[in-house]
Design a protein around this nucleic acid. Sequence first.
DNA 1: TGCAAACCATAAC
DNA 2: GTTATGGTTTGCA
Length: 200
Amino acid sequence: MEIYVKNIDGVWFGIASEEHRVLATTFGSDENDVIQSLKETLHLTGPMKTSVPSALEEKAFSAMKRIREGKGTPDNVSLCMDRLPTYTQCVLRTVSQIPVGYVSSYGGVAEATGGGARAVGNAMAKNPFAPIVPCHRVVTSSLGLGGYTGGLRVKYDLLKREKRGYTEAKNIQVESGTLKVFPVEFVLGKLEKLLAKRPL
DNA sequence: TGCAAACCATAAC
DNA sequence: GTTATGGTTTGCA
């Protein structure tokens, strides 16, 4: 298994891969934090070897860069979820289908996947593929931000860049059922009122 | 608003 | 098996 890190426009991106399969991805402002995060996600200890990124990693890096810039999710990155619990995989795949410009709620994802809201929150918290699996697009049912492992500020910034001007909620079909999504503007609108009172 | 109880998959014992 | 733990939700004062 190898770990790759790369600084793009001041942001550190990290990838852990093995035999041409992406096992985990993450990003952050500090190189060591990114490496540490990958190791914790994969339950690894000790030093990791790094090497020159192959086409696979380069593709993943550019995907993460695009997402961070709010340009949407390229779906050509193959992620290896084999080791994850079945339900977690289902949740991650479902969340991956939330389009740019829209968000869904923990409860909504739960309904679509036949689980519980808290369980979805758990899956998000442990999402090994941030931000490629867009867990930042999952918020609370009351249009609050919810949580984010990388910090709420980061989640907020990501969502701000994903504004597309949509005005209506809609349902989309996912493998396990129907998922209700609504414009990210709904969340941002409420949030800005809140921020006026109590800054993030 | 704020609080308490119900909820559900996981990980750790 | 059992228990503890969340990036939740909902209902009710």
